[in-house]
């Protein structure tokens, strides 16, 4: 009884060894890949640059118009307005302030 039982476990033991071997191999491959990836990144950044060109950032506005920021050497220091956190009225204004009517 016992002998038959031991024979029955052998294939499972071999399968377990194979699984452990595969797992170890995949870990080694992953680690090796991590070593290689950083070596590839510098190659990706070495794109031809257009030095000296003015930087223009176009931000699409809600109405489809574009906002073009002027060069950084402009006298006035530009900064985007903070968007108020308060909820803007979702209903039409009932009254308007304006010069005397």
């Amino acid at each position: 009884m016992n002998t038959m039982t031991n024979r029955g476990k052998r294939p499972n033991q071999q399968t377990g060894k194979l699984k452990a071997l595969l797992l170890t191999g995949s870990v080694i491959a992953t680690l090796a890949g991590m070593q290689v990836l950083p070596l590839q990144e510098p190659a990706a950044t070495e794109m031809p640059a257009t030095a000296g060109e003015p930087v223009t950032i176009v931000v699409p506005a809600a109405d489809g118009a574009a906002i073009t920021l002027p060069p950084a050497n402009r006298k006035a220091q530009l900064e985007l307005n903070p968007i108020p956190q308060a909820v803007q009225p979702q209903i039409n204004p009932v009254a308007r302030t304006r010069s005397s009517r």
Binding site: A86, V87, P89, I91, N92, P93, V94, A95, R96, T97, R98
Partner: peptide, 8 residues
């Protein structure tokens, strides 16, 4: 939060 108004 208030009356909805506008600056014309």
């Amino acid at each position: 939060p208030g009356w909805p108004v506008a600056v014309s």
